[in-house]
Amino acid sequence: MRITAFRKMMADEFGEIRADMLARDHVFGALGNRTVDQALEAGVPAKEIWRAVCDTFEVPPERR
């Protein structure tokens, strides 16, 4: 998954402003206690990050 596609999926699911806030501020245990932005910078695949976001926020399977 490309980062641009990941960012679009985040914005579609949470709204642009909240998606930016979550990526910057929310620490995910599943990502090694990193934020989305930190995980992307560390080279974690966007698909793995998306799964962690979906699991944490209980995104329904049809929107994953």
Score class of each variant (00 low, 15 high):
56 T>Q: 12
10 M>V: 03
9 M>W: 01
13 E>G: 04
23 A>N: 13
30 A>L: 10
22 L>R: 09
40 L>C: 09
15 G>E: 04
60 P>V: 13
10 M>Q: 04
54 C>A: 15
55 D>S: 09
51 R>N: 11
12 D>H: 00
27 V>S: 06
37 D>I: 02
8 K>Q: 15
35 T>N: 10
16 E>A: 15
19 A>I: 04
5 A>V: 07
50 W>T: 02
27 V>L: 11
38 Q>K: 08
51 R>E: 15
11 A>K: 07
33 N>R: 02
53 V>A: 09
49 I>R: 02
49 I>N: 05
20 D>Q: 13
61 P>R: 06
50 W>N: 00
60 P>D: 13
53 V>F: 02
21 M>L: 11
37 D>N: 15
41 E>H: 08
22 L>C: 01
27 V>Y: 07
41 E>W: 01
42 A>T: 08
61 P>F: 11
8 K>E: 15
31 L>P: 01
47 K>G: 14
40 L>F: 12
51 R>S: 13
61 P>V: 10
12 D>M: 05
18 R>S: 06
58 E>H: 11
25 D>W: 03
22 L>T: 02
24 R>N: 13
29 G>A: 14
26 H>K: 09
24 R>T: 07
1 M>Y: 03
3 I>W: 01
60 P>K: 12
4 T>K: 09
4 T>E: 15
62 E>G: 00
62 E>W: 10
31 L>D: 02
61 P>E: 15
29 G>H: 05
10 M>W: 03
45 P>D: 14
58 E>W: 03
32 G>H: 03
13 E>H: 01
35 T>S: 13
42 A>N: 14
43 G>L: 11
55 D>P: 00
59 V>K: 06
22 L>E: 06
20 D>G: 07
14 F>L: 12
43 G>C: 11
9 M>T: 05
21 M>Y: 12
34 R>Y: 01
28 F>V: 04
11 A>T: 02
43 G>W: 08
60 P>S: 11
6 F>S: 03
56 T>D: 07
16 E>Q: 08
55 D>M: 07
39 A>S: 11
33 N>C: 08
3 I>L: 10
52 A>W: 04
28 F>Q: 04
38 Q>C: 01
47 K>I: 10
14 F>P: 03
32 G>K: 03
64 R>N: 11
41 E>C: 04
4 T>I: 11
47 K>C: 04
50 W>R: 03
5 A>G: 01
30 A>R: 07
23 A>V: 00
46 A>R: 00
12 D>A: 05
54 C>T: 07
64 R>F: 09
48 E>H: 01
8 K>V: 02
36 V>H: 10
25 D>Y: 07
39 A>M: 06
23 A>Q: 14
8 K>Y: 05
22 L>W: 03
33 N>K: 08
60 P>A: 13
35 T>A: 09
36 V>A: 08
2 R>D: 15
25 D>R: 10
64 R>W: 12
46 A>W: 05
28 F>H: 04
15 G>Y: 10
58 E>K: 07
50 W>V: 00
11 A>D: 14
44 V>I: 14
52 A>Q: 09
40 L>K: 06
13 E>R: 05
35 T>G: 08
26 H>C: 04
20 D>C: 01
18 R>N: 13
21 M>G: 02
34 R>K: 15
27 V>F: 06
1 M>W: 00
16 E>S: 12
9 M>P: 00
58 E>M: 08
64 R>Y: 06
34 R>E: 11
